[in-house]
C-alpha cells in the first residue's frame, strides 16, 4: 500500500519532469555541447566541427568578455544597493499607519506591473536627447543647458539604464519587506517600550532581526533577477554605446545573433551560468533552505 502510494506521487510529477527535461535540461545539454563546436550560422557549409576548448580559450582571451564581466558587476552592485535601500526605506514608511497609504502602495506597484518592453520604451522616450522630458526638466531647473543623449553616451548609458532598472525592481523589494514588517507582532514593540527602548533601539533590536531572513531572500532574488536581466538593457541600449552596457547575457546574445557565432555564444552562456551558480552557492543558501522547508 505504502509503495503504491509513493508510486502515485511519482506518476503525478512525471509529466512535469519530462517537460522540464525537454525545455530546460536538454537545451542546456545542447548548449554545453555546442560550446565545444565551431558553429557559424552564416557558413552552414562548414559543418559543425568539434574544436574542444577553442571557444572558451578565445572568449577568455577576448577583452570584450572581461568588459562584460565588469559591466555585469557594476550593473549588479548598484541595482542591488539601491533597490534594497529604497525598497526597505519605503516599506518602513508604508508600515506606519496613516491615511492614504493604500493608495501610495498601489502607485508603487505600477513599475512592477508594467510589461518590461513598455517600461523600457517609455524610458527611452523620457531620455530622448532633444525632446525627452528628463532633459527638459533638468534644463528648466538649470542643471544643464543643452540636452544630453543619456543612452547614447558612454559615460551616462550605464547609470541611465540602472536608474530605470532600480525604478522597476524596487517595488518588489518593498512589497516583500513590507509583508515581513507587517508580520512582526505588535506586542514585541510594546514589550520593548516597557523595557525602556526608544524608537531607534526597538528598530535595531526588534524589527531588524525579524525582517532579516526576508531581507536576505529579497536580496538573493534581486541578484538573480538582475544578473539574468536581458530586456532592461537590450531594449534601452542593445549593450551599447561601444559595449558600455554590455553585460554577460547581452554578450551571449550579440555573439550568437550579431556575430552569428553560436559556439562562442554558448561558451559565454555556460560561463555565465557557472558564475551565477557560484553566486547562488555563496549567498543563496539561506534562500534555498527557506524555500524548501516550506
Amino acid at each position: 500500500m505504502r509503495k503504491r502510494e509513493r508510486l502515485t506521487g511519482y506518476l503525478l510529477i512525471t509529466p512535469a519532469f519530462l517537460a522540464i527535461f525537454a525545455v530546460l535540461v536538454y537545451p542546456l545539454g545542447r548548449a554545453i555541447d555546442m560550446s565545444f563546436h565551431k558553429i557559424i550560422l552564416t557558413q552552414p557549409n562548414l559543418g559543425q566541427p568539434f574544436i574542444g576548448l577553442e571557444n572558451y580559450i578565445q572568449v577568455i582571451k577576448d577583452p570584450i568578455f572581461l568588459n562584460a564581466i565588469e559591466n555585469t558587476f557594476v550593473w549588479l552592485f548598484f541595482n542591488l544597493v539601491f533597490q534594497m535601500l529604497f525598497g526597505t526605506l519605503i516599506a518602513l514608511l508604508l508600515n506606519e499607519s496613516f491615511r492614504g497609504r493604500g493608495l501610495v502602495r498601489g502607485l508603487m506597484l505600477i513599475p512592477w506591473v508594467t510589461p518590461s518592453v513598455v517600461a523600457m520604451l517609455t524610458w527611452r522616450w523620457m531620455y530622448d536627447a532633444e525632446f525627452g522630458i528628463i532633459n527638459q526638466f533638468l534644463k528648466s531647473i538649470g542643471v544643464i543647458d543643452k540636452g544630453i543623449a543619456w543612452l547614447g553616451n558612454v559615460d551616462t548609458a550605464m547609470p541611465a539604464v540602472i536608474l530605470e532598472s532600480v525604478w522597476k525592481g524596487t517595488p518588489f523589494v518593498m512589497l516583500m519587506i513590507l509583508a515581513a514588517l507587517q508580520a512582526v507582532p505588535r506586542e514585541l514593540y510594546d514589550v520593548a517600550k516597557v523595557d525602556g527602548a526608544n524608537a531607534v533601539q526597538s528598530f535595531f533590536n526588534v524589527t531588524m532581526p525579524l525582517i532579516m531572513p526576508t531581507f536576505i531572500i529579497a536580496a538573493t532574488l534581486t541578484v538573480i533577477y538582475t544578473f539574468n536581466n536581458f530586456n532592461a538593457i537590450w531594449l534601452m541600449t542593445e549593450g551599447g554605446p561601444l559595449r558600455a552596457t554590455e553585460t554577460l547575457p547581452i554578450l551571449v546574445y550579440t555573439l550568437g545573433f550579431r556575430n552569428f557565432d553560436l559556439g562562442r555564444s554558448s561558451a559565454v552562456g555556460v560561463l555565465t551560468l557557472l558564475i551565477l551558480l557560484v553566486f547562488v552557492a555563496l549567498f543563496g543558501q539561506r534562500y534555498i533552505r527557506s524555500q524548501v522547508d516550506l
Binding site: V23, L24, Y26, P27, L28, R30, A31, M34, F227, N228, F230, L248, P249, V252, Y253, G256, F257, L262, S265, S266, G269, V270, T272, L273, L276
Partner: peptide
C-alpha cells in the same frame, strides 16, 4: 536559470 543561455540551443 539565465534564459538567454537557452536561446542558441
Amino acid at each position: 536559470f539565465p534564459l538567454v543561455l537557452l536561446v542558441p540551443p
